[in-house]
Design a protein around this nucleic acid. Sequence first.
DNA 1: TTGAAAGCGCTAACAT
DNA 2: ATGTTAGCGCTTTCAA
Lengths: 352, 352
Amino acid sequence: MAKPPSHPVTTVELAARLGISPSTVSIVLRGQSERRKISARTVERVLQAARELNYVPNQWARNLRRQKSGMIGVILASFRWDWAQELTTGMAEVFESTGYTPFVAVHAYQPERARRELLSCLQRRDEAIIMVPLPGLDDAYERARAMGIPIVFVADRPSTLADAHFVAWDSPADIKLAVEHLVQIGRRRIGFVGFDYPMPLNAARYRAYRSVLQRAGLPIDPRWVARGSMLLSPEEIIEKSIAQLFQPGQPHPDAIVVQHDGLATLLLDAIRTHGIRVPDDVALIGMGDYPITRFAGVSLSTVKEPIAEIGREAAKAALDLLSHPTQPPIQRLLPCGELKIRHTTVPGASGA
Amino acid sequence: MAKPPSHPVTTVELAARLGISPSTVSIVLRGQSERRKISARTVERVLQAARELNYVPNQWARNLRRQKSGMIGVILASFRWDWAQELTTGMAEVFESTGYTPFVAVHAYQPERARRELLSCLQRRDEAIIMVPLPGLDDAYERARAMGIPIVFVADRPSTLADAHFVAWDSPADIKLAVEHLVQIGRRRIGFVGFDYPMPLNAARYRAYRSVLQRAGLPIDPRWVARGSMLLSPEEIIEKSIAQLFQPGQPHPDAIVVQHDGLATLLLDAIRTHGIRVPDDVALIGMGDYPITRFAGVSLSTVKEPIAEIGREAAKAALDLLSHPTQPPIQRLLPCGELKIRHTTVPGASGA
DNA sequence: TTGAAAGCGCTAACAT
DNA sequence: ATGTTAGCGCTTTCAA
């Protein structure tokens, strides 16, 4: 067992040991020996020594000198419900061949934490940032902009920045599919459960829900709309929603659209626990088509969110902004349009 | 809207602008002004200028100079099934107050990717690494050791390193609980579905499974044991397992223990799709108590894995190794002992 | 109470 | 085909 040396080997040490200059070592170690015509013998000696002494290049020094980090900061909301899994898989496909490395962190819906993570990205001089926005971080966004570090927002975008770059699912269009499905299966008291925060897509989703009801001539009862603060945990939101939507002695909704499948599965579970039958008493439709929804025991109706594609497109947008820093805002709203009818709305549904 | 400057502001520029020396600026910006007795006026001017010019310290330069990064590399298998969510939440609790930042990446069970991520940690001079081990990476582990960067393995440990640091759940002890439960509810043809890879805990789990059967005088039929390569996707493993365990015309197991709840939920779903009743035809018990198992529609019996605690303890171990680099191996096997009896083994179970 | 100077490890322009 | 040199941005003595 080799005993750990006091410190990792440097190019200077390698050079000294071989009696050559550090630059030659640097050239060889970066694979430039061909272009710079380093003799085969020297190349061999350098590689040999590097292997023997376990040389590992120092990224800080390299970044400092080259004035670029090759890192892309990625700040997500959480690792729950496999959303991060699908998104990062999509991103990885794009980044793989580019030499850029994503650096993933989560803000857990806490503004302070998000601000801290964002600052970390800036301090590390990440070349671009991909993030799930949170309200109240305008100062932090502004700092990034002032440093010339582009931010690509995913899932939604800050309502305060009209020219923000973003890649998101056109969920307002697809929530229409969801609500129309509920109307079509004969539901008339259609409720809404979700988050309440001031961002364009979130607002648009709620508007879309209302507009479908309006056009269908169905009532929009505030008692059937439960929108909780993002600062609450999903569990808390569900608890409050249940308390509000199913007040004893009050007519409860006969169908509910839920902001995303994570919430929807929690709601489904809570509803069943309360002895309310799904879909007999109340039909349930989520959004996202998260993996969990497909399980036979869950079989949650939903609309598909192209998560991996959002990841790919966000990654592409980031790369694009790196090669063309000054360009009009990249604002992509990905359509999807895949309604997944399962047991929580139609008992016998195939669930594809 | 401020136009982005060509490059971020440096301490030298700040100093030049204020007509003072960079060292004074540095002292103030690191909050050392008290100790170093910088005049209140100077302090104020520096902070003011930093704010105005949007100064953000350059982490590379700082790290390079101080010879420490404050970063802990974390390499997990994937972001699926909320395992990463719980683990990183546990770690964050410990790291929060320390100034260390975890840097999360995943290897997706691909040795090449794991090697690459590990090398990234070394190049970044992460001060410690916490990782889910993968077989065949001994060379990479050795490089870390040679550089004096401690690795804390989680979930299992490389069988080749007797003195590796690790924090894991004592799953072999708890798989006994699972199998004994199956025996107790009268099952006699108890199968096993999991991964096949050469690591101590994985081997011990399988041995524990066998030993319970042996002691109960039950048969151990190789046709009922399906252990797939880690290189296969969970979906592939399940597909192969089903094909093997439920061969037409052959007696199939009447109960199955599954390596972890992610696999188990997939298996549960596949089994139901094949028209096999759970638990009537076959009982199912997983391991981990992942969030998904608790849903009414899934209600998977399982044994609890203290994931957040593994995260906390691994983080503590890493910090411990940073303050006391030379010490006997930290090898923690966390007991848990919580059997969760739900519907996939006992139809009426409460499922707590 | 502040400044000058050196240097962390690496790279790239410019010499030879 | 290889070496010299300067410097990326910051921190830390040491000196004033």
